[in-house]
Amino acid sequence: MEILLQDWLSVKGFMLFTIGLLAAVIGVLFGAAGFILMPSMLLVGIPIHATVAVNKFATGISSLSNVISFVIKGHVSLKKYIPLILVSSLGGVSGAFLATRLSEQIMGIVACISLIFAFITVLFSNKLIVKDKKETQEQPINKLIPFAISIYDGGFGPGSALMNITYFLKKHYIYIKAVELARIISFSSCTGAFLFYYFTGIVNWGIAIPVAIGSIIGSFFGLKIIPYIQTKWLQVALPIIFFFLIVQVVSDLLK
């Protein structure tokens, strides 16, 4: 325990806390926490599988804090979304299982293909961003889409929440509602994936705790900022974020 405390209170621990905080803010607003978290942790010398495991723990904890807030405020009913939670949890476990059996190169290729597909969808769909006030009926959710995204999230992660937000926007959910549902799915998929990584002995608590604390604080900051986000900003920001995610993944593949 003393060794863990030394890790948490060190300069590296502060850096990990800051990484978690910034990643959570970006994750809540635009669903791209992995764009900050994954490369930043790799830059400080953390192995890829440990990075993914910590990412799932930190994102799961910060998403849980958001979900609790949504429920307390009466924004969402968990009972209504139990099937979606179960499907997403199963997807997260499946993704983690695949990640431990596929090479980093193959996982990078899968990530790149997924992000390119999502980027094209965002770029060329003229119905992607709906108004801040509901003007059309919310369309039924096809649970296979969140399941597939959760598989990707459990095994790799960057851009997965953004994919979920994009999907719900296309189903005519307002932006805040899309974010709320994306956080519920992130909590479910990350929890499933983290449990798999934990029982396979990949989790490093000296890294996971400071990142998770930063993520919790950052997630609340992000929720405070959301009401001030305008949809016209999203029309510009979402394609740009997807583009840089793709660049990141491609650059990792070419190393």
Rank of each mutant, 00 (worst) to 15 (best):
K143F: 14
M1A: 13
P158Q: 07
S251C: 10
I174P: 04
P158Y: 08
S10N: 06
M163K: 06
A50S: 13
Y167Q: 06
V122F: 01
A32K: 09
G159A: 10
K177N: 14
I207A: 06
L115F: 02
I36T: 14
G154V: 02
F30D: 05
S62D: 10
K133N: 11
P83W: 00
I109K: 09
P140M: 09
I36E: 04
T136F: 09
A118S: 15
M163P: 12
I185V: 14
G60H: 03
L78D: 05
I246Y: 02
L42Y: 06
I216V: 15
P227L: 09
Y197S: 02
I207V: 15
N55R: 01
V44P: 03
K224C: 02
I241Q: 10
G45H: 07
F196R: 01
V25W: 10
K80F: 05
A208R: 04
A111W: 12
V25F: 07
I151H: 07
F156E: 03
G95N: 10
G34N: 09
L4T: 08
E138R: 12
L21C: 05
L128M: 12
V25E: 08
L181C: 06
R101M: 10
I145P: 04
I106A: 11
I217E: 04
R101K: 13
A50T: 15
Y173V: 11
S40N: 05
M41E: 09
I68N: 00
I106S: 12
M1Y: 08
K131E: 15
I109N: 03
T18I: 13
N126I: 09
Q137P: 00
D132P: 00
I3Y: 12
I68G: 03
V236K: 14
T51S: 12
